[in-house]
Amino acid sequence: MVLAVRASGISIGYIDEEEEYIVWAVRRVDLAIEEGDAFCLVGESGSGKTTFANAIAGILPPHVVTRGKLYIFDRLAIDESTWNFNGLRGRVVSYIPQNPGTSLSPFLTIEEHFYHVLRDTLRYDREKSRRAAIEALLKVGLDRGVLEDYPHELSGGMQQRVLIAIALASNAKIIVADEPTSAIDANLRASVLQLLGKLNREYRVTLLIVTHDLASTSIVCNRLAVMLAGKIVETGRTISVLRNPQHPYTKMLLDCIPLLGVKKPLKPLPGEPIQVVEDKAICPFRERCPRAIDKCVEEPPLKPVGDEESHYVKCWILTGGESE
């Protein structure tokens, strides 16, 4: 099995304005995404999921520090504090941004967007890029008429489709989608998600979808990871995690969203997300956890759950409160 993405011990932190301290958004994360997976990264705002996705897409901002290693198809993209995304961006990893309204240049037509991307990644000329663009637009259900339009002339849903088409056009093997459904109307969400699922199944594109919306993305993804305060607290096959959530945080996440056909009381999540300035080895959920025990001042290891294949969880309660 080929690994599309492999992170080992990766940490990503933002330096504050006065360069006095670093806020760690991602802390010593190990993660593997196999080729052909549709992988879903779930978490609340500030959990570090978007930062992690940006690292894979190669668009970390300049005031960021990294530790650990990140491989993309066995190529070392982040090696401790040095980054090298040359040849990866666009060609191997592409990206669907979060906000369709601001993610296309207002001064370029859709065709010009395609042209610049395809010329710089695949050395296409104007004619060839136009044909590739039409093909990609077809895949997302848009016709060639939009090529001559400027972004502001399209609706939000169309802009989102165009973004997906551009990400597709350069034939990248991995597509990172950052909250692809959060900025569009509810009635369009399902169709965008179905579209992503189709790409994954029919064109064998590896997907990494970042979201806080567990319910709808679970339709598309075959695997998911739950992130909290820069750490992955539970990961496994989607069905396994949703049916049999182990971590108290995951359980609470599932409790606060309505699932179709399931009658249950909805419970809001207690507490506020935390900002990690000092990277201490404690359980990030300790203060909000209803089942916290004394042991939780130490960081729990990621342990497999029962006999379920590749379902891991990071919680002391489930390991019987014993360290290795």
């Binding site: 666009g90 990206y95 941004p97 993610s103 001064f107 610049h116 991307v117 710089d120 990644t121 350069s170």
Partner: peptide, 20 residues
Amino acid sequence: DYVRSAVAWGVRRNTIIKHF
């Protein structure tokens, strides 16, 4: 945002400066 997304799509630096 559109500069960020262009970078992620693999558009080169000079193209981004000139056209975006």
